[in-house]
Each structure stands twice: as structure tokens, then as C-alpha cells.
Design a protein around this nucleic acid. Structure first.
Lengths: 342, 342
DNA sequence: CTAAAAAATTGACGCGCGTAAATTTATTCT
DNA sequence: AGAATAAATTTACGCGCGTCAATTTTTTAG
């Protein structure tokens, strides 16, 4: 890191005693040059700390080494955690992840996809808003850029989908709850994405299979502040005679977190001890769910598996030139996490 | 959105009947062209949906319209929330925010700053890791790119600092707690950034000013999973005779969230009623702090003010050509948020 | 050691845009 | 109306790099 300042690749090539085209090859794939020249270049790199101008690198490329990651709501630790995993894996593959959050807004999602297009990313990992997505815009985008959907599916859109298997996880929880106490009712809010509906449907069929009548309690609210919705809704329901069952299965953990807070405020005891008045269960194993009072019994989605599989499939798509032929859906099973709340 | 495909600015200029240099001017600042030509360009834009190649746009620029946002830990909803605010404000100014998270790791932070340099951002908003930052790397970066620090200060580094005034907020809380019950002890973990130390120091002087002996309880732990640290530490302390006071002021909300969970598990009642065994207070008004059981009394940092001021100052710096002359520090006061826990 | 294969070099062009100087056209002001 | 001013056009160059074809050098295989 000394010597005269290096301005461009030509100067760096001169300084390292290698021709510019070879240096260029090196930067696009270090393994594509002979071991001995690679060593010489990397030695020079330490002396001069030159970095190619990424803008010049990419201007004539139709596909860059950038990976776009789009999540619906970054303030939700679930997505923050997933994004973190994905970022690491992209970096390990020598790609450059760029993170975007739609912040729950359709327009934002559309803008992000628009902007992303001009970034010419090598591929995109997209967790769509879901029902609120501009389906046309997403579809158009996926046709132009190799895209893998995760978390929330949109039928037929994108090269693949990776998510968790609500059809397995919800019955797992329902059976556990029925086995250990009164059959649960289902607590939901207006669905923001297909998962919410799938979970409700899975609940209905699972509880019917066990010979019970499905009971669904729905509260209103249209923001992404799920905890607040669960709290407000829970407060109202609990104050007005309570849920139809003393066991409540929530559509997701964030809703459950709000509901637990509401129960506490009304001095309704939550838990699986005989003395408790209500049992509450969630779904997702949200990072905070182990710190509720009582800690939340839930279904653990396999963060690591979902993110690593998503990245893996995306790179398959990229290496296949943007098209796999058929759209693959991968669903991971959830695991029951028994804590104190149910 | 019909007609023949537009490949570059020349073709778009031809199609819209305007010269290329004028079109170029338009894209760099739509207000810099006459109203009538602007209208013609925008009309053509609707017909052809052309977008300039951002890579070609930026390759000859020493400063681009990109704003880098770097936070230490995105899974922390506090930073996710701040980032969201900042993003919006940058977009409103016609800039392009790009978000990065150090994920609590020094190497990540260094890599991000390195990569950011080759992005040639117009400016950067940086919430450094703090004590774990590679100070030299940060310093070097700030000399090369207009940078405003926020949340966590590093003396003399960057063009400005925006944060919250621990010297005001902590005494505010201490006085409240002393006025309404027994004087608090201070619950902390190994400091990850200067705020932690400032808060402890502010606690000591505030409690002494009120004529009490400062008592500090420290637990170990070196990850960014603060809740877990608070929980594990709290469990141990509460089981081994408890805190030196029946009122505990935690260094931050996440620690408090863990502590409340620990107290619950040990069936120690938390709250400000006379019947409660312990009072617990936090600091930050973390998005989840209203959903703990009981809800957490805390100090609200002014998210909106911090983010808007940060952006504002950054644009001042940018407009001043990267240097304001003197380094400005802005501290916002915290507000006491009285909830049920203390 | 020689022929074949692999890798590096040389020289050159183009990408899409920013930008500058000189010129022409349009707008504003009195 | 004409003069002064503002804006758009024409022309042309350069940025840093990808990439190609032809050539030379180095490595590998027989």
C-alpha cells in the first residue's frame, strides 16, 4: 500500500508486470489465470491496493455479480435474520448482496423492483409482500431477471420458491395442542400473504381430522405492526368474554406476542400448567418468542435451511442461464418448540 | 410503453426529439431544463420506458447520488427502524440509499467500508460498531467519503455526529425512579459502544447527586444477543440473592427484555404496584418494549429526529463539498415513557 | 527434445454516458 | 420592436473496462 497512486487497470497492469487483458480476466475469475500469474497479481494488489471501477466493469455487462435481496419488512427480525443468512452466503460465493425492504408498501416494492432492474443483478432473492404485491409488476420483473421467491409464494412467478411447509407444521402444532389440552381455536388477522391463508386452511383440516369443530377468531388491522394488532384485538376479545377455546393458536408469533401482552394486562394467566387460564401458541419461532412471559410455544421455521436453499437454487438458476426449465418448489418442515405458553 | 426498444440515451433523445446533452441534463436534474422540454421528455418517458444505464452514468463521476447506510446490527429492530426512516428521507431527496449491516462483526464493518469506497457514494450515514470498530479503518474511510456518524460516536471521526443525550436521559430516569421508590441499581453488560459507558457514568453521577451510593451489576456475554445475556445474567443474579436494589435500571431495553423474562420464570413479580417485588426500567423505547409483560418503562429515543437530523446534516456536508469546517455534534433529549414495569 | 496445447500479450474497438466549447434558437425585458 | 439573456443543439472527446483476433510465450504431453 505504498507507491504512486494507481488510477486504472492499465496502470495497475504496468505496475504488476502483467498485461491488462490478463488482469481483467483475473478480476472476473481469479482461477481463470495461471497460478503463477495469479500470485504475481495478488502480490501487486497488496502493494498498491487498487480496485477496479465497478461502474466501468458493469456498464457493458448484461448480468453483474450483484444479488438483490428484497424482503417485505426489515423491522421484522424474522426477515432481518433471513437476510443476514442470505447475505453471508452470497458473499461466500463471491457475489455482492444488496438488501432492500419494501416496508410493507406495494409502491415501495414496485419501485425497488424497477430500480433493481437497472442494477442488472445476476439474480434476485425476493420475499414478496404477498397479497399486497403488484402481481403484474412482480411477474414482469421475474421474466427479466433470474429470481427465486422465498417465504411467500406467488403461483407460477419466479424460477423457484422456497418456504416452509404450513401443511405439515400447523397440523403438528394442532395435534400437540389437542393431545395436551382443549382443542385450539385459531387467531388470525387479515392475511398479508398466502402463508396466512395456508395456515388457516391447514388448521381447519387438521382440527376436523381430529373430530373437532374449527373455530376461527379474526381481528382487524392492516398495518405491519402485528404485535399491536394482536394486543388490541386480544384485549378486546379477552375483555368481551374471551376466545371460544382456552387454547389459542395464533397465525404467527408476532400476533401471539401481542396477545400474551394483552393477557398479562388483564391478569389472565397464560401457560400449560393446570392452574393457567389460557394457552397461547404461535408460529415461526420469532427471535423474541423465547423472551415473552411466559416464553412462547411455537413452530420453528428453519431459517438456515430456507436461506441456504434459496441461495443454492438461485445459483443453479444463474448457472443455467436464467432458466431451470421447470419451476421448483421446496418446502421445509417446521419443528415444534415447546416452551411455557402452551 | 410501446414502440421499438430504446437501447441508449441517443436513441431516446432521437425518439423524444431532444438533443442528448439536454436529455442528460434532465436526468441529472429535471429542474435544470426548461419546463416545456421537461414535459416533452417526460411524455416520451411514458411512451418508451427508457432508463439510463446507471453504471455508465457513474463511471466518470467522483461522487454519485448513492447514499450508504451502515448499521451495526440489522436484526435489532431499533436499527431497522432508524434505517427505514433514513431510507425514506434519502429517497425524498432524490438519492439512492443502500443499506448495509455489520452484523456485529469488526471484519464485516471493515469490508463494508472498503466496498462502499468503490461505490463512490455521495455520502454515508454510519452507525459504527463502537468499541469493536477498526478505528483506523473507519477514520481512513471518513477522510475519503463525506460521512456522518450516528447513534454511536467516535471522537473526531466523521463530519458530524447525531445521537441521543445520555447525560440528560439517564438522570431523568434515575430521578423518576428515586422519586417513586427505592433508588435503582444499574444493570449492564460489557459495553459494545460508547453509549453504554456514558449511560453508566451518567447513572453514577445522577445517583450520587441524589445522595445515594451507586451500585452497578454487570454480567458477562459478548454476543449481540442482548436479550439472552439479560436473561441468563438475570436468572443467575435473581436466583443468587437478587439485585442490590429492588429497582433495576438496565443499560438498554434489550437487556431489560431478557431480565423481565428471567423474573417471570422465577415468579418474581415485576411492576410499580406496592405488591410487586422488583421494578425494571430500560432505555431506548425499543419497538418491542411495549409488549413485554409487564410493559417496559423506558426512555424514548427520538427515532424520527435522529434520522431526519442525520440526513439533513449529511446533505449539508455534501452541499458544502464534503467538509463543514468544524465537526458538529447534535444530541437529542430522551423522553420518559412510563409503562407498567417501573 | 519436439510438437501440441494452454496461457499471456499486443493492439484495437466499443459500450453508454458526462461534459465542454462553439453555435444556434428561443425567451424575456424594456 | 430589438437587445440581452437563457436555453438547447452540434460536435467531439474521454472515462475505465470488456472483449476480440492475431500473435507470441510458456507449459504440458509424448
Amino acid at each position: 500500500m505504498d507507491g504512486p497512486k494507481i488510477k486504472n487497470m492499465q496502470e495497475f497492469a504496468d505496475a504488476s508486470g502483467i498485461s491488462r487483458p490478463t488482469v481483467s480476466k483475473y478480476f472476473n475469475d481469479p482461477t481463470s489465470v495461471r497460478q503463477s500469474t495469479r500470485a504475481r497479481i495478488e502480490e501487486a494488489l497488496e502493494r498498491f491496493d487498487y480496485r477496479p471501477n465497478i461502474y466501468a466493469m458493469n456498464q457493458n455487462r448484461q448480468l453483474t455479480k450483484t444479488i438483490g435481496i428484497v424482503v417485505p419488512y426489515l423491522s421484522d427480525p424474522f426477515f432481518a435474520e433471513i437476510a443476514r443468512n442470505i447475505e453471508r452466503r452470497c458473499l461466500a460465493k463471491g457475489f455482492w448482496p444488496i438488501l432492500f425492504s419494501s416496508h410493507g408498501e406495494k409502491e415501495q416494492e414496485r419501485d425497488i423492483l424497477d430500480n433493481l432492474r437497472s442494477l442488472k443483478p445476476g439474480g434476485v432473492l425476493l420475499a414478496p409482500l404477498g397479497r399486497r404485491s403488484d402481481r403484474m409488476a412482480v411477474e414482469r420483473f421475474c421474466k427479466a431477471v433470474p429470481t427465486v421467491l422465498f417465504d411467500s409464494n406467488i403461483d407460477g412467478v419466479g424460477q423457484a420458491f422456497i418456504g416452509s411447509d404450513n401443511g405439515q407444521s400447523v397440523p403438528l402444532m394442532v395435534e400437540y395442542l389437542c393431545r395436551t389440552g382443549s382443542p385450539p381455536c385459531f387467531f388470525e388477522m387479515p392475511p398479508v400473504n398466502p402463508n396466512a391463508n395456508k395456515r388457516r386452511d391447514a388448521f381447519v383440516s387438521a382440527i376436523q381430522r381430529l373430530g373437532h369443530e374449527p373455530q376461527i377468531v379474526r381481528v382487524e388491522g392492516k398495518s405491519w405492526e402485528f404485535e399491536q394488532i394482536g394486543f388490541d384485538g386480544g384485549l378486546k376479545i379477552l375483555a368481551e368474554g374471551g376466545f371460544p377455546s382456552s387454547t389459542v393458536l395464533c397465525s404467527n408469533d408476532r400476533l401471539a406476542i401481542g396477545l400474551i401482552a394483552a393477557a398479562y394486562q388483564l391478569q389472565i394467566s397464560v401457560g400449560r400448567e393446570p392452574s393457567s387460564q389460557i394457552r397461547i401458541a404461535g408460529h415461526d419461532d420469532h427471535p423474541f418468542s423465547r423472551f415473552t412471559s411466559p416464553s412462547l410455544t411455537t413452530i420453528a421455521q428453519d431459517y438456515a435451511a430456507i436461506s441456504s436453499k434459496s441461495v443454492e437454487v438461485l445459483f443453479d438458476v444463474i448457472e443455467a442461464g436464467g432458466d431451470l426449465g421447470s419451476r421448483k418448489e421446496t418446502l421445509f418442515e417446521g419443528k415444534l418448540v415447546m416452551r411455557a405458553s402452551a
